[in-house]
Each structure stands twice: as C-alpha cells, then as structure tokens.
C-alpha cells in the first residue's frame, strides 16, 4: 500500500483548498465537490517542491480555541487603539521591544507574528535572521517585561502546545 504521505503530502492544505473552491463556487453539488477534490489533490502534489517541511498539527482543537481567543482579542485591541487615537492630548509612550522567541519552526512564528500585529497595541516589526528575536513596536507600554510576559502567556505557550509537544 502506498503511504499516505506520498499522495497526500499536506492534508490541511488540501482541506483548505476544497473549502475555498466550494466557497468560491457558492454550491455544494456533487460535481463541484468532485472537481474541488481533484484540485485539492493535484495542487499540493505540484507545488510540493516549493514548500518547506511543515510541522505536524498535534492538537487541532486547541487551534480552534486559539482562533476564538485571537478573535476576541482583536475586538478588545480595536477598542483600546481607538481610545488611544481619539485621545485629544495624545498621551502615549511608544517603544520597541525585543521579544525572545521560544518557538523554532517557521509556521508557528508566522502565526505568532500575525497575532501580535492584530492584537492589543503591538505590531511585529522585524524577525532577526537567527530567528531568535522578534522586534515589536508597541503603541503604549507601561512596562516592557510585562508586555513580553503577556504575549508569552497568551499566545506563544498555546502555539507551542498546538505544534510541538
């Protein structure tokens, strides 16, 4: 028997492609599902040489919880940033923060950087070449250590749990 790895190298990508095809076509008829499945099988096979090795998803359900947490934080973040922008006196203390990364794989780091950009008062600015430090710009920081601890507790630990252990 051919191992699954050979003809289905990235099951998550295939699922995503199928879902996207059905959303674009706005129908779930049998023909569309067949065509979408064909594309979802063929596209990962063709593009496989371009991809870096993807880490395995260990706990998909934790990922769902993580997504909902980020969505909640996005709304809080927007209210906070709106308050800062509309503050007539413009009291802010912006700062650059060096965030020491615990994650090592590329995909979790990308997800972490995106969540940092979308959530309260911080934008990820630069990933150093050694992939150990993420530079963050914060709009209003009281204490740098505090911000680092908060990001580590809220986003990096769950991501580490999802992808590595």
């Amino acid at each position: 028997m051919i191992p699954t790895q050979r003809w289905l190298p990235m099951p998550l990508l295939s699922l995503l492609l199928l879902a996207m095809w059905l959303l674009l076509q706005q129908s779930v008829s049998l023909g569309q599902i067949l065509l979408g499945s064909l594309l979802a099988l063929v596209i990962p096979l063709i593009t496989q040489p371009f991809w870096e090795r993807q880490p395995m998803l260990k706990h998909p359900w934790l990922l769902v919880r993580y997504i909902f947490r980020v969505l909640g934080d996005i709304i809080i973040a927007n209210l906070q940033v709106s308050k800062l922008i509309l503050d007539p006196r413009g009291r802010m203390s912006p700062a650059f923060i060096e965030y020491p990364l615990e994650l090592t794989e590329m995909l979790p780091i990308t997800i972490l950087a995106s969540s940092i950009t979308l959530t309260p008062g911080t934008v990820s600015v630069n990933l150093r070449k050694d992939r150990r430090t993420l530079v963050i710009h914060a709009l209003n920081t009281g204490d740098r250590e505090d911000t680092i601890a908060q990001i580590r507790e809220r986003y990096e630990r769950p991501l580490k749990e999802i992808f590595e252990c």
Binding site: I74, I75, A77, N78, V81, S82, L84, I85, G90, M92, P94, T117, L118, G121, V123, V125, H137, L139
Partner: peptide, 21 residues
C-alpha cells in the same frame, strides 16, 4: 489615526488593526 499620529510606526497601528476590522 493614519492622518493624525506623529510618526510612521505609530501610524501603522491604525490601519493594520482598525481598518481591517
């Protein structure tokens, strides 16, 4: 925020979060 804030890195916060939402 994009029009009002004073430097580029602060301006980045407005569009990247608020406009997207």
């Amino acid at each position: 925020g994009l029009a009002r804030l004073k430097d580029f890195f602060m301006r980045l916060h407005g569009p990247s979060k608020t406009s997207t939402l």
